[in-house]
Design a protein around this nucleic acid. Structure first.
Length: 681
DNA sequence: CGTTTAGTCGTTTTT
DNA sequence: CGACTAAACG
């Protein structure tokens, strides 16, 4: 059978576990420990195909993946393997996405209004801020944590299932003194969300988990799915685990895939205990299959990666092995500073492209989003197209958010956060006036009726009627989707130009938003998807590259999860960046940073360059002039490990003429600088 | 009451 | 540097 071809013994065991000829209904729980590049996606997709071929109903398979990208990749592969007559897997997506979908279906039965809207992180923080203000927690000089910090604390408590006091003590000790106030704040926040008919990200999981605890509804949800498959299980948190166990209490039909060596979402309350403890949740325990054969990286790259992860305090998976021979060790490239680092990357990228490695096959990875800014500048200067993943998203741009807020307010008149954002677009309307106008909005068939007779401040008087017209159109079914998006855009135009001095630059984003909106069936679907899976921004001045164009990938290490490239460059392999100096406090945090480096390194198929700038310029702390900091190689590559790498220094010290650009210069990159990184054996 | 300005503080990773 | 707040100003 086609979907079983080319699998190795372990993969095949995972694919076939519990499935007999024509009978997929007796598949007991299965845990697959899949090392980096071990064909995890293939195995998972093949298992889905195998289930379907043996009688499972694709409409009753639930596929939980870590990102939308992973979900569509999986769907693509399954469709390729499964015979044509089979229907596609219709329940596939992230925990949050599936949660939203199920809650919409069961809303009535769990006392939720099915017209709920979803708050993203920023909205949630804004609402928290409103509540904080109402509770009088903002004007104290007690250095109360900021809204974003409050939300992080709240979210961590919800996702970990731990009591607030413990969360504070363990992760936010500097906020412990505010425990009581935070408790009041969170209490008010929950009440506000409920009365405004909004759910935040955590609610999508929390309500789902609660739903699985209510007999009756829980049973109905369980009966929907014969098989549940979860990817990247090492990065799930206790709340997600409780959902999973609620769906499959006895483990029948459950498959989880993951790799504890790649757990990098501890900050989101993910815990490797989920994956380690999974087998014992069931009687008999879940079968465990381990995939250790890597098909991705060359042997030298794997050897170096294995050495890095070997020093982890705790390890559960075995070393990966590879049959891809190569004489080329990963390079550890010392560059003078972060500016030269950017130059090096640009030159190497171009040189490799000359050798036939497309830009799309190359990726620059970094710990935090702003680490790439100098590289972005250098790429733009040389007209090298790129797309950046992670970091600031397109949707978070204020002007995009403005337009979306109008739509969201029309969909959910009670949503105070978006109402405030929209109302304060008007001249002369600030928080106070906005609050008064918002108070007039009612429940019922014509929630905005009272706004029509409301008299705004003089400055806003002239433009008010047009706004009333707009709300009218949006509330009724006058303008069909996506025509109403265009309608909002036109209405917004004058505000836009008045508000943003750089409106010209930003106009492109709005056109893009309209284009994206056109791809969705309805406003509700658009808004939901937008909140859960916002399109990524591109920082390229030339605008978003066309899909068939070649472009370089820039990505945070977190966003690079599950992906692979022929050539990988890891920026700032220095202490303070990897590990981040924010994470050097507790040893668990350090361990997560080590795994992060491991994840970055194991993305590479053929070539891997780790960059070590010796100093970098910081604009943060210095008041006058640019100061710089000296950095040292990351602690995760101690001297004894250097023999796994080829040491290089760039630019090669030479006479002045060596600086000439072009591919010729790149040959010199391999030159070693005597003694400095002397390998020990 | 809204807007502007000056001053302070903290600073990651993402659904 | 940029996000956020508090105080001054209109």
């Amino acid at each position: 059978m086609k979907h079983l071809e080319g699998l190795n013994a372990a993969q095949r065991q995972a694919v076939e576990h519990g499935i007999r000829d024509g009978d997929a209904s007796q598949a007991g729980p299965l845990l697959v420990i899949a090392g980096a590049g071990s064909g995890k996606t293939t195995t998972l997709a093949s298992r889905v195909a195998h289930l379907v071929v043996n009688g499972a109903d694709p409409g009753r398979i639930l596929l939980l993946t870590f990102s939308r990208r992973a979900a569509s990749e999986m769907a693509r592969r399954v469709i390729r393997m499964v015979p044509r007559e089979a229907r596609p897997v219709t329940w596939s997506g992230t925990f949050h996405g599936i949660g939203a979908r199920l809650l919409r279906i069961y809303a009535q039965r769990i006392g939720l209004n099915d017209g709920f809207t979803i708050h993203d992180r920023e909205d949630a923080a804004d609402l928290l801020n409103l509540v904080r203000h109402d509770l009088g927690l903002s004007d104290k000089a007690t250095r109360f944590p900021q809204k974003a910090t409050c939300l992080t604390i709240y979210s961590h408590a919800v996702n970990s299932g731990l009591p607030l006091g413990q969360v504070l003590e363990r992760h936010f000790p500097w906020c412990s003194q505010h425990e009581e106030a935070l408790r009041r704040l969170f209490d008010g926040y929950v009440a506000a969300k409920q009365s405004q008919n909004v759910l935040d990200y955590d609610d999508l999981l929390l309500y789902w988990a609660e739903m699985m605890r209510s007999e009756g509804v829980a049973e109905d949800v369980r009966l929907r799915f014969d098989h549940v498959l979860v990817d990247e299980y090492q990065d799930t948190n206790p709340l997600q685990a409780s959902i999973l166990l609620g769906l499959k209490p006895d483990g029948q039909g459950l498959t989880a895939v993951g790799d504890d060596a790649q757990a990098i979402y501890g900050f989101r309350a993910a815990t490797v205990r989920n994956i380690l403890d999974l087998p014992q949740q069931f009687t008999p325990p879940a079968a465990v299959v381990t995939l250790t054969q890597s098909y991705r990286s060359t042997q030298p790259i794997l050897a170096a990666s294995n050495a890095v992860i070997a020093m982890a305090r705790e390890r559960f998976t075995k070393d990966l092995v590879s049959e891809r021979v190569s004489a080329q060790k990963p390079r550890l490239v010392t560059v003078p500073d972060d500016i030269q680092q950017a130059v090096y990357v640009a030159e190497r990228v171009l040189a490799l492209r000359e050798e036939g490695v497309a830009l799309k096959q190359q990726a620059v990875l970094f710990r935090t989003s702003h680490h790439s800014s100098l590289v972005e500048l250098e790429l733009a200067r040389r007209n090298i197209p790129f797309v950046k993943f992670g970091g600031l998203r397109f949707l978070e741009a204020a002007h995009v958010k403005d337009i979306v807020s109008v739509l969201r307010w029309a969909s959910n008149p009670r949503d105070k956060v978006v109402a405030f954002r929209v109302l304060q677009l008007f001249p002369g309307i600030g928080p106070q006036t906005a609050a008064r106008a918002f108070d007039r909005v009612t429940d019922g068939a014509h929630p905005f009726a009272a706004l029509a007779i409301y008299r705004p401040p003089a400055a806003a008087l002239a433009v008010w009627p047009a706004f009333i017209d707009l709300l009218q159109d949006l509330s009724g079914s006058a303008a069909a989707w996506p025509a109403e998006l265009e309608r909002v855009k036109e209405w917004f135009q004058p505000f836009f130009e008045a508000r943003y001095p750089d409106a010209q630059v930003r106009a492109g984003d709005i056109d893009q938003l309209v284009a994206i909106g056109g791809q969705y069936r309805s406003r509700e679907q658009f808004l939901t998807e937008l909140a859960l899976d916002p399109p990524e921004a591109t920082s390229d001045e030339a605008g978003p590259p066309l899909l068939d164009e070649d472009y370089l990938i820039l990505s945070t290490i977190h966003s690079a999860k599950g992906q692979e490239w022929t050539a990988v460059y890891v920026l700032n392999a220095v202490d303070g960046c990897i590990p981040s100096d924010m994470a050097t406090g507790r040893s668990e945090d350090i361990e997560e940073e080590r795994r992060l480096l491991y994840v970055a390194m194991t993305r590479a198929k053929d070539t891997l360059d780790l960059l070590v700038p010796q100093k970098f310029y910081v604009h943060q702390q210095s008041r006058n002039g640019d100061r710089h900091l000296y950095a040292s190689r990351t602690r995760f590559i101690p001297p004894a490990m250097l023999d796994r790498f080829e040491a290089a220094t760039w630019p090669v010290r030479r006479r002045q003429d060596a600086v000439a650009a072009g591919s010729g210069a790149n040959v010199d990159l391999k030159a070693r600088l005597g003694g400095m990184w002397k390998a020990r054996t």
